[in-house]
Write a protein that binds this DNA or RNA. Structure first.
Lengths: 338, 338
DNA sequence: CTGTTAGCGCCTTCAA
DNA sequence: TTGAAGGCGCTAACAG
C-alpha cells in the first residue's frame, strides 16, 4: 500500500471532498472557521494520507522557512557542542529548525556556507566566527538578515553578540592563582590575531596582575597544532622561574588539552611542579592527574540566548545592537592547590 | 544601497534584458547555449544584484532539495561528533547539505524530527537511532525515503547500515586482556535492550572467553546516569575477585568516562588495582592516570561512508540492503599493562 | 540561440 | 462556512 509520492494539499482536498483553502485553514489553526463535519473529514484524510505540508512550498510563499542557519567554527570543540545543545533546545522551543554548518575553521568554508544558508532562505543566522572578512561581511550587511555572533565578535562589524564576560572571567581566574600563592604566571593562548576573546582575557589578566607587582606576568602565543612550540614555551617558562611557584592559564579548552599533553611529555606534573588553570570546563578535568582547575562557561545558556536574540530580530525587534555576556564559574581542582 | 529583498530570477532577467529561461540556463551550466553578449550581461547582472537562486523554489520544482537529514541521538557524545564530521565532509563533496537534528536520546524527539525532515523534503536520512519504533518506522517504510543507519540497527527494520565490526572489535579487545594475563573480566554496558551493538560486543566477549576456560567472564548492565549503581557493580566485582588480576571492558566512550569517575571515587587505580579498556577513543585517554586503553572506531570514515551510501540510494541504486562494517583499532595504554 | 508558458505545493485575497 | 484564482521563484517543455 506504500504510496509512492508524498501527499499534497490537493490530494487531501480531494480525499476530504473539500477545497484546498479549507485544508490550509485547518493546518493553520483556523479550525474555528470550519464546520464539524468538514473538520472531521479533513482530519481523517490527513491521517489516512499521512499528509504533512511541505515547508519548502510554505517557505516559498511568504519567506518564512522557520530555518535558522548555524555556522560553527569547529564542531569537534566541546565548547561548540554544548553551545549547539542550547541552540537546539531554543530552536525547538521557538519552533525553528537549525541548519548546522561546520566550517572546520576554514574561512572559505565560512563564505561558502554563508551563501548556502542564504540560498535556503534561512530567516536568521547564528555564527561562531572564524575569519569572516570583506566579501562575506558586505553581503551580510546588505541582506538585512538577522544575525548574532557567539563567543567572538567580528572586527568592525556591528552585530548582536552573546558570550562570556571575559573580563570578569579572566580576573576571577587570575585572582584565584594569586590567592593560591603563585609567583609567576603565564597566559597561554593561540595567536591573538583580532580575536577579541583572546585579547580581552589577556588584558584582564594583565590588568589584574598590575595590582600585584610582586608577581611575574608573561604571555605567549602558540599554534594549537604545533606541539613543539608548546613544549618549548612551557619548558622555558618552567626553567626561567626555577624555584618559584608558577602557573599557566590556558585560554581555551582545546589548548588546555594540548598543554596537558605537553606537560606530560615534559614530565611536569600539574599541581606539584606547576599550576594549571584552563578556560572551558572539560568532562575529564577531574580525571587528569590531581584534576585540572577550569573556568566553566555557561555554554548551554549562551547558545540558548543566541537563538532567543536572533528570533527577536526575526520578529522585527529593531533595538540597537546588543551585547550579552554571561559570567563564568571557577571550578577549583588539584592543579591549582597549594 | 542595501537592497531590501533578495533578488529573484526575474530581477536578474530584467537587469540583463533577458528572459528568465536564459538566466535559468546560465545557472544550470547550459552556458554553451548562450551567446557571448548574453552571457556577459547575465554575469554582470548576477554579480550586481548578488543574486543566488532560491534552493527552496528549486526544490519545490523538482523535488531535489539537496538536503540530507541527520538524526543524531546525542550530539554531546564524542562518537557522534566525529561521525558528524565525516558526514559533513561527504555532504560537501557530494553537493548536499546536512540538516542536523539532535534527539537528545528521546524517542519522541526522534519521531518529531523525522516528521520535520520529511516536511523539509530531505532527499535522504542518516540516523543514529535511539528508539525508533512502531509509527516512526511505518511512516518511513512507506515513504521510500533513502535512509541509512549508523552504528546501531533498528530491530526488524531492513535498512542499510554502516558501523563497527563489533565482533572483530570485541574479540580483539578481549584477547588483548587475556594476553595481558587478566584472570577475571567484567563486560560493562548500558542496559542491553534491543541495541544490537551492545549485544554483539557482549556475545563476542563471551565467545572469546569460552576458549579460555580459566578466565572468569562476567557482565553487568548499568544505567549511564546512575553513579551509585556503577560504583556498586565495580566494587562488587573488585571484592569478589580479590587477589586476582582483573579488568573491566566498557562498552562505549560515555560509559568509560563514568567508569573512570567511579573507580576514582572508589579509590581504585586503573593499571595497578584493576585493568580498564574502553570502546571508543577518548581525547583524554592518555592523560587519565597511567592512560586508558581504548578500542578506536574509524568514526570519520563511518560518517563518510554513510553519506556515500545514502547518496547512492538517492541516485537510484536499488541493490539489496547493505551492511557495511569497519574494523576498530586497539590503542594500548597503561590501564591494561601487566 | 532565446522567450513564453505552465505548473511545483502552499497561502491569501476575494467572492459566494 | 466554503472555494476559486493568483502568485511566491524556479525549471522544463515548447515554440520562435
Amino acid at each position: 500500500m506504500a504510496n509512492k509520492a508524498r501527499a499534497t494539499i490537493s490530494d487531501v482536498a480531494k480525499a476530504a471532498k473539500a477545497g484546498k483553502t479549507s485544508i490550509s485553514r485547518y493546518l493553520n489553526g483556523e479550525k474555528h472557521l470550519l464546520s464539524e463535519a468538514m473538520l472531521a473529514r479533513i482530519e481523517k484524510a490527513v491521517a489516512d494520507l499521512d499528509y504533512r505540508p511541505s515547508l519548502m512550498a510554505r517557505g516559498l510563499k511568504h519567506g518564512r522557512t522557520r530555518l535558522i542557519g548555524l555556522i560553527i567554527a569547529d564542531i569537534t570543540n566541546p565548547y561548540s557542542v554544548h553551545v549547539l545543545s542550547g541552540i537546539e533546545a531554543a530552536c525547538r522551543e521557538k519552533g525553528f529548525t537549525p541548519l548546522v554548518c561546520n566550517t572546520n575553521n576554514e574561512v572559505n568554508q565560512e563564505l561558502h556556507y554563508l551563501d548556502l544558508l542564504r540560498s535556503y532562505q534561512v530567516e536568521g543566522i547564528v555564527v561562531n566566527a572564524v575569519g569572516m572578512r570583506e566579501e562575506g561581511l558586505n553581503r551580510l550587511q546588505q541582506s538585512a538578515l538577522p544575525m548574532v555572533l557567539i563567543d567572538r565578535k567580528i572586527p568592525e562589524f556591528a552585530c548582536d553578540v552573546v558570550g562570556l564576560d571575559n573580563t570578569q572571567a579572566a580576573t576571577t581566574a587570575t585572582e584565584h592563582l594569586v590567592d593560591q600563592g603563585f609567583e609567576a604566571l603565564l597566559f597561554l593562548s593561540e595567536p591573538l590575531g583580532t580575536v577579541n576573546t583572546r585579547r580581552e582575557r589577556l588584558s584582564a589578566f594583565r590588568a589584574t596582575l598590575a595590582r600585584y607587582p610582586g608577581i611575574m606576568a608573561e604571555n605567549a602565543e602558540v599554534p594549537l597544532a604545533d606541539s613543539a612550540v608548546i613544549d618549548n614555551a612551557l619548558r622555558q617558562f618552567h626553567t626561567r622561574h626555577r624555584g618559584m611557584r608558577k602557573a599557566v592559564i590556558s585560554a581555551n579548552g582545546a589548548l588546555t588539552l594540548q598543554v596537558a599533553r605537553s606537560l606530560k611529555r615534559l614530565g611536569l606534573h600539574w599541581g606539584s611542579d606547576i599550576g594549571l588553570l584552563g578556560f572551558d570546563e572539560l568532562e575529564w578535568a577531574e580525571l587528569a592527574g590531581v584534576g585540572i582547575t577550569t573556568l566553566k562557561q555557561p555554554t548551554w545558556q549562551i547558545g540558548f540566548a543566541a537563538v532567543e536574540q536572533v528570533v527577536r530580530r526575526i520578529e522585527g525587534n529593531h533595538e540597537p545592537i546588543r551585547e550579552q555576556v554571561f559570567s563564568g564559574e571557577l571550578i577549583v581542582r588539584g592543579s591549582t592547590a597549594r
